[in-house]
Simulated assay, not measured.
Amino acid sequence: MSTKVTRRRGAAWMVSLLVVALLTGCGQPAAGQPATGPLPGAPATPTGRPSRPPEVRPSSAPVIPVSYPATGGNRWSVAPGEKSPGRATSGRLLRYRVAVERDIRGLPAADIATAITTTLNDPRGWTAGGAWRLRRVGAGEPTDFTIYLATPGTRDTLCQDVPEGYTSCRNGGRVVLNVARWVKGVPGYGASLDTYRQYMVNHEVGHKLGYGHERCPRRGRPAPVMQQQTLGLHGCAANAWPYPNGEVRYSGPVGAYDDEIPRREGAYSAH
């Protein structure tokens, strides 16, 4: 075979390879397909491949939503007592327990008890004046009063007052916190839900300690803790503490306002 024939066959073979490469798209990514090399700015592994973003796994801890009926079954879960006594070292000792109605879901008795005891042991709370010591006890231990977290309807049963299902109350040895207020607060309060909860506890326990209702002393001042802040601030600012500076009890003129008990839509509805 001549040299010219061999060269012609070799040239034809190279043209065929080029046509096949163009038809198959060899040497560049096909339309709609990612490139095989690292993307600009992507961190590369030692092999030259882009690293994968870290896998994010959701927490396995279940989230239990808060729910409760309009009226519960008047059955209770009692929190354990404090492991150590409160900060107060002088004054009359009053023992209390914390009970949460079993129909309330998502608010364990131990958690509610911790929030209540933290409030009562605060240096701005009722023990600041030196007249009282407050200690949480468990089921079966001697007690002076019980703090209940109750559904709106059970609140009416325990309070034995105007059956309005909206406010909280104190009735004898019962300090009754309405779960609807604990969860929702009140409109226009002007402070956080945690502040309102601290107010609830201190206001109702204040009744147990013998204090009556008070009024706003002057527009723009903090509201006394014994003011009915749930029903309105009357120009004062929200305040959760009887001893805001830890030394002197803050108070206002004695007496309650003649506000009509609010009957807002949804006060009795399940949440």
Rank of each mutant, 00 (worst) to 15 (best):
3 T>R: 15
4 K>W: 14
7 R>Q: 13
9 R>V: 11
17 L>E: 10
17 L>N: 09
28 Q>F: 11
33 Q>M: 14
33 Q>V: 15
33 Q>G: 00
36 T>E: 13
38 P>F: 10
40 P>I: 00
41 G>A: 10
42 A>N: 08
44 A>C: 04
49 R>A: 15
49 R>V: 13
52 R>D: 14
52 R>I: 11
53 P>D: 12
54 P>D: 14
56 V>E: 03
57 R>Y: 06
58 P>K: 07
59 S>P: 04
59 S>I: 02
61 A>W: 09
62 P>A: 14
63 V>L: 13
63 V>A: 14
64 I>D: 11
67 S>V: 06
69 P>M: 01
71 T>S: 12
71 T>L: 00
72 G>F: 10
78 V>W: 00
78 V>E: 11
78 V>L: 01
81 G>N: 05
83 K>D: 10
83 K>V: 00
85 P>K: 05
86 G>T: 07
86 G>E: 01
88 A>L: 07
94 L>A: 07
97 R>H: 03
98 V>H: 06
99 A>L: 02
99 A>V: 03
100 V>T: 12
103 D>Y: 02
105 R>P: 01
107 L>T: 05
109 A>P: 07
110 A>C: 05
110 A>H: 11
111 D>N: 13
113 A>M: 08
114 T>S: 11
117 T>S: 15
119 T>D: 03
121 N>A: 08
125 G>I: 03
127 T>V: 13
130 G>C: 07
131 A>E: 14
139 A>S: 14
139 A>N: 04
140 G>H: 09
140 G>Q: 08
140 G>T: 03
141 E>Y: 00
142 P>A: 05
144 D>I: 10
145 F>E: 07
146 T>G: 02
151 T>M: 07
152 P>G: 03
153 G>L: 09
153 G>I: 13
155 R>L: 11
157 T>C: 01
161 D>L: 08
162 V>F: 05
162 V>C: 08
163 P>M: 01
164 E>C: 11
167 T>C: 01
169 C>V: 02
172 G>N: 09
174 R>E: 09
177 L>T: 00
179 V>T: 03
179 V>A: 08
180 A>Q: 11
183 V>K: 04
183 V>F: 01
185 G>R: 01
190 G>A: 10
193 L>Q: 14
197 R>T: 07
198 Q>D: 15
200 M>S: 03
201 V>H: 09
207 H>M: 09
212 G>I: 07
217 P>F: 04
218 R>K: 15
227 Q>L: 15
227 Q>I: 00
234 H>Q: 08
239 N>L: 08
239 N>K: 08
241 W>P: 02
241 W>D: 02
247 E>G: 04
248 V>I: 15
249 R>S: 06
251 S>V: 15
251 S>W: 11
252 G>A: 06
252 G>M: 04
252 G>N: 06
253 P>G: 05
254 V>N: 03
255 G>I: 04
256 A>K: 05
257 Y>S: 04
257 Y>C: 07
262 P>Y: 13
266 G>C: 10
268 Y>L: 12
269 S>F: 13
270 A>R: 10
